[in-house]
Amino acid sequence: MLARELLWSAAHVRGLSTFEKFVADFRPQVILVQAGDSIFMLRLALALSKAHSAPLLVYNSEDYFFKKSNYLDDRNNRASAPLYRIWHRVLRRAIRATFRHASHVFYSCSPLQQTFSDLSNAPSSVLLTSTEISPRTTTATTEAIDLVYTGNLGLGRLEALLEVASVAHDINRAAVLRIFGPPPTAAVLATLASAPAVRYCGLVDQSTVIKAITSSHLNIHVESFNPAYRAQLTHAFSTKIADYLATGTCLFAYAPPEIASTQYLKETQSAIVADSPENLRPSLQKAMREPRMRACSSARAIEVAETNHSATRNNYHFREIAIQAARGHSGSVEL
Rank of each mutant, 00 (worst) to 15 (best):
Q232K: 13
Q269K: 14
P227G: 04
T234M: 10
I302V: 15
A287R: 04
K286H: 13
E278A: 15
L218I: 05
T214S: 14
I220L: 11
R294G: 02
N226C: 04
I210P: 00
S276G: 08
D205M: 01
V209P: 07
E258L: 03
P256S: 03
T249H: 04
P291C: 10
R199K: 15
E290Q: 15
A231W: 14
P227Q: 09
R199M: 10
R300N: 12
I220N: 07
V209M: 09
P277Q: 02
Q232V: 06
T208Q: 13
S215V: 11
S216C: 15
R300V: 11
T249F: 01
F252C: 02
R230T: 09
A274E: 09
I220G: 04
A295R: 02
E267T: 04
Q269P: 01
V209T: 08
Y200H: 06
S270C: 14
P227H: 09
I241K: 10
H235E: 14
A255Q: 05
L245V: 00
A299P: 00
V198S: 11
G248W: 08
K211M: 03
L218P: 08
Y264H: 15
G248L: 03
A260I: 09
M288K: 08
P282K: 07
A255F: 02
Q232G: 07
Q269C: 08
A299W: 01
Q206V: 03
T234V: 14
V198W: 05
E267P: 06
L203F: 15
N219G: 03
